[in-house]
């Protein structure tokens, strides 16, 4: 299967959403969302639980369809099955096969992306070194701690060197030291041209993003750099700005 169906022109945005709306059983989850994310950006998606972050991510990847609007990823109209080869997706739940060892999990998902032989071995080594899990690969996942499962899950998302990495709350349950090293790695990846979309509730992590998008009740109420968002809300911290903008967004309805 071709892995390079998308346009590799760096001028074309990694994510290009126009007027996206989504309703489930007459309940509007997303309304009129337009968003463009250039390649290599580390983009943070912030919003309270149930605001529509996960639905937005699913529509980006083509797992779900929008009812209105258009989605282009790396220049390709979505949904498109072959595009999944270019994405790395780590959901909120760890979604691992507990009966298998860490390595078996990695090999399985590697195979799904067409990795095999020496390349698969090399990629497993790289991804697990990154999340500091190389020593525990031959243990059953059922014996892993919560943080280890999260790290394995992250390693799986990195395995096939995706051009776009989507991480739904990646650092929950991971200790501060490892959290820091993971964020350093994410920053490094985005410098190499990998586009990264991260959802988070941790404000210190949000500050590390190039730009932030604030979602509330299915509407994108602000998109800007962390600094600009703080200034526009007239607050001193991102946390206060997030709350202030959220209330403003709610009042406008």
């Amino acid at each position: 299967m071709s892995t390079n169906v998308h346009n590799s022109n760096p001028e074309i945005a990694a994510v290009d959403l126009k007027d996206i709306s989504r309703t489930f059983h007459s309940r509007t989850v997303l309304s009129n969302i337009s968003l463009s994310i250039p390649r290599g950006e580390l983009f943070g998606l912030l919003g309270p639980s149930g605001s529509g972050k996960t639905t937005l991510i699913k529509i980006m990847t083509g797992i779900d369809r929008s009812d209105a609007g258009s989605v282009h990823m790396l220049g390709v109209p979505m949904p498109q099955l072959s595009m999944l080869q270019s994405f790395g997706y780590m959901a909120q739940s760890d979604a691992l096969y507990n009966e298998l060892t860490g390595k078996q999990n990695l090999s399985f998902f590697g195979a799904m992306f067409g990795l095999k032989g020496a390349l698969l071995k090399e990629r497993i080594q790289m991804a697990t070194d990154l999340v500091d899990l190389s020593q525990h690969l031959h243990r059953g996942v059922s014996t892993y701690s919560g943080g280890m499962k999260r790290r394995l899950s992250l390693a799986i998302a990195l395995l096939h060197e995706p051009k776009l990495l989507i991480l739904d709350e990646p650092t929950i349950g991971i200790d501060p030291v490892l959290r820091k090293s993971i964020w350093m790695e994410l920053t490094a990846l985005s410098k190499q041209g990998v586009t990264i979309i991260v959802t988070t509730h941790a404000m210190d992590e949000a500050m590390k993003c190039d730009r932030l998008g604030l979602i509330r009740d299915g509407k994108l109420i602000a998109v800007n750099t962390p600094q600009a968002i703080i200034e526009s809300a007239g607050c001193s911290t991102l946390e206060d700005a997030f709350i202030a903008l959220g209330q403003k967004g709610g009042a406008e309805q």
Binding site: I63, S82, A91, A95, I156
Partner: peptide
């Protein structure tokens, strides 16, 4: 367990 969801994020 969510593994089907994850499986379906691969090009399978």
């Amino acid at each position: 367990s969510g593994t089907l969801e994850r499986l379906l994020t691969t090009p399978i």
